[in-house]
């Protein structure tokens, strides 16, 4: 049934889109978290003296 397979294509595309959004979204969040934690560390060092 070609029409069924054609409509199935949307599900496959949706699945891969969700997968990549999930992975790239977490990647971006992770990198902003890393950047912020390093900035906070640098800030704490300027106050408390370098370890």
């Amino acid at each position: 049934m070609p029409e069924m397979i054609a409509s199935n294509g949307y599900y496959v595309a949706a699945a891969y889109a969700v997968g990549w959004i999930c992975i790239l979204g977490y990647l971006l969040r992770l990198h902003s978290l890393l950047r912020r934690s390093r900035e906070a560390l640098a800030h704490a060092r300027t106050i408390g003296g370098a370890p």
Partner: peptide, 30 residues
């Protein structure tokens, strides 16, 4: 993901300890 998330969490923890030590007794030498 786990390695980098751990890295961020550990950096945060070190920062917490630094600012805690700074608040308790001046500059920290460790």
């Amino acid at each position: 993901f786990i390695r980098r998330r751990y890295e961020a969490a550990l950096t945060e923890r070190v920062t917490e300890q630094l600012s805690q030590a700074a608040a308790l007794g001046g500059p920290l030498h460790a």
